[in-house]
Amino acid sequence: MWETLRKHRHPYLFIAPYLILFLVFQLVPTIATVYYSFTEWNGLRPPRWIGWRNYQLMMNDYMFSNAIQNTFRYWIVGAIGIMGLSLLIAVLLNSKVLRSKQFFKTSTFLPYVCASVAMGLIFRMLFEEHAGLVNEVIVSLGGSRIPWLTTSAYAWIPVVILFIWRLTPWFTMIILSGLLNISDEYYEAATVDGASGWQQFLRITLPLLNNILFFCFITITVDAWRLFNESHILSGPGTSNTSLFELMYTSAFTNFKLGYGSALGVVLIVILLGISLIQFMVRRRTGEI
């Protein structure tokens, strides 16, 4: 035991800071949260053990089922939108015919630089029903005003647009760095073989980006389930576009139901762990890990 540790002390030492920080700042709070999820607690009086009652309430809570559905939607729509757009932009930016590459690279990255809190405020104005620019454009194109943030049916759309708008550049950059690492030789060989640009993309680019795309998907998943600022600022009627994370936050910090908030947090963790487990099982089965 000691012998192995000593022999491999360097990698262990290199990883140790992470493990220590994880233990103190993540594991301990998470375990405490699991404990609190079985209590009724307003943060002022001592917590009172109530067993599974918080979880039972969740089953009857329409706000909870709204939040789950909304977050699921943000995740799926967001993942498709972000992955698709960022692949497209990265490929365009990587194009050999492109002039002033630096300008395009910098300006397409701009949305990620902008704080989501600030952008939320701006999107809220842009999507305003009577005076927002989006509706103004729709009207001038001959359409009719859409009550974006004032009806449940539409309220999720501005949120997901902001989510995609802000995060796409991040993934564009990561995918682009992957594209840069693909040697030109592959493409030259393919061109000689007479493969079209689209075929090259499918047969060379995508497979070689596999690891990076996987990383992107995991990151989007985590980001989508942690979505908070966007839906908090662009709030629609009731909980029509509330995310799970937001519901957890309001339960714990606005309503002082720290027990119920903790229970929602536990559900959030379980969902994320479940998703990642499935992802890994799929990848293992297809022999990618």
Binding site: P147, T151, P237, G238, T239, T250
Partner: peptide
């Protein structure tokens, strides 16, 4: 919070 959610759905015409 609970009451407002219902009012908001009312204002939305739902």
């Amino acid at each position: 919070g609970i009451i407002s959610a219902e009012i908001e759905k009312y204002v939305a015409g739902e």
